[in-house]
């Protein structure tokens, strides 16, 4: 089994409390499925939207990361899957897809080759 990182980008907020609750319940169901199938390695963490970017030899600090809201990483999860294709297939059930967001799937490099 290989590890993969899911990066959640974008996604609309719920328009009403009820809608937010529905979106969240879909997430909980999806996470539960991933756990039940043994594919969830680490549910990960949500990220704040603010941040700083440190750059160059002078370690200049600027406000960042300046991505547009639709590209901003809002959180991550680590899953295990047979292959990149399998991991991508699993990501197809992510509720962020219902609200205009996307999942970036990245294989984690292995230590032992």
């Amino acid at each position: 089994m290989n590890e993969f990182l899911y990066l959640y980008r974008g996604g609309q907020r719920g328009e009403s409390p009820d809608q937010s609750q529905q979106i969240m319940q879909k997430w909980l169901a999806w996470m539960k499925d991933l756990t039940a199938s043994g594919n969830l390695k680490d549910p990960g963490q949500p990220l704040e939207t603010e941040g700083k970017v440190v750059k160059g030899k002078g370690a200049t600090v600027t406000d960042g990361p300046f991505a547009e809201a639709k590209d901003l990483v809002g959180g991550f999860t680590i899953v295990v899957a047979d292959s990149l294709a399998h991991a991508a297939k699993l990501a197809g059930g992510c509720p962020i897809l219902d609200v205009d967001g996307c999942v970036e799937v990245r294989p984690v490099m292995k230590m032992d080759m």
Partner: peptide, 12 residues
Amino acid sequence: FCRALEVWKLRG
């Protein structure tokens, strides 16, 4: 609510 959604969906 936005915060709740962001945090709870991953952390339960």
